[in-house]
């Protein structure tokens, strides 16, 4: 479904020291630094897979998602999703994908959630019967019936995230990108989101690519983990593979009782990608 081969992406970042004087100086002479966000990233993901995409902050996770969803074009490398090059045929591509950014909303802020959904129906040209059916299904699974008539701005974060996920699935995409979907959620909402994603994959065979810092998300959802650091893929395998990697490279990692966060933290340290 997804093939990425040798993708590279770099950004030019302006740099200056702190302070007003330096800011004035920067007006005339600006120093740029080239940040290599992605360096030769390659992987393939098959239909129906649930992949966790992890790495420390700034590792290149969001850049990858942006390239896969067609927002950004890479500097070099090949990337195909279902035979489409995302940034070349944007409209055809985005019709088939759903994207949830945990830190951003795609709902209209001041209008009731259901109105946002109606607008999305129009945007994606979803036919009325399939929209009604999908809405009914999502309302039931994500327990939205109570909150559909509330304006987005008055929802709690957990309620909003459930609506965000529903919004990105109204057009029945075959591929779903989730960028930190559980960030800031309470335990109940987190469990609800995880359960829902699992069911989605079981019932509709939707392919899911998930980035997160919450290792329990990965444990609950993903059957495969891709670890990225400093723009390079460092590990691609099951969660057990990752635990094993942490053990062999670590000093005293033998205790099974060690929790996942510690394992990952050690792994990041050992791989020197922080």
């Amino acid at each position: 479904m997804i093939t990425m081969k040798g993708i590279c992406k770099s950004y030019k970042v302006a740099k200056r020291n702190a302070g007003f004087k330096e800011a004035c100086k920067a007006l005339f002479h600006r120093e740029h630094e080239l940040i290599h966000a992605l360096k030769d990233v390659s992987f393939t993901i098959d239909d129906g897979e649930m992949v966790g995409y992890i790495g420390p902050n700034g590792a290149g996770k969001s850049s990858t998602i942006k390239i896969l969803s067609g927002i950004l074009a890479p500097d070099s490398g090949m990337c195909e999703v279902d035979g489409r090059i995302p940034w070349k045929c944007r409209k055809e591509h985005v019709r088939e994908i759903g994207v949830v950014f945990g830190q951003r909303s795609q709902l209209w802020w001041d209008i009731p959630v259901i109105d946002s959904f109606e607008l999305l129906k129009e945007i994606y040209s979803v036919s009325t019967p399939s929209y009604n059916q999908k809405l009914e299904e999502l309302t039931e699974l994500l327990q939205l019936s109570e909150i559909l008539r509330t304006p987005t701005r008055q929802l709690s974060l957990g309620q909003r995230m459930r609506c965000e996920i529903a919004a990105s699935l109204l057009h029945s995409p075959r591929l779903l990108f989730l960028d930190e979907p559980t960030i800031g959620l309470d335990a109940v909402s987190k469990l609800a989101v995880r359960d829902f994603i699992k069911r989605l994959n079981e019932e509709h065979k939707t392919t899911v690519l998930l980035t997160t810092h919450d290792m329990q998300d990965i444990e609950a959802i993903a059957n495969r983990v891709i670890l990225i650091g400093k723009g390079q893929v460092l590990l691609d395998g099951s969660l057990d593979d990752m635990k094993r990697a942490a053990m062999t490279s670590g000093d005293d990692m033998s205790e099974d009782s060690k929790n996942l966060d510690l394992i990952v933290a050690d792994l990041y340290h050992n791989l020197n990608i922080l």
């Binding site: 969803s69 944007r90 951003r104 945007i123």
Partner: peptide, 13 residues
């Protein structure tokens, strides 16, 4: 700046 334009790029319109 708010990233709303990214969202527009994600819509088939």
């Amino acid at each position: 700046k708010r990233g709303d334009f990214d969202r527009m790029l994600l819509r088939p319109r």
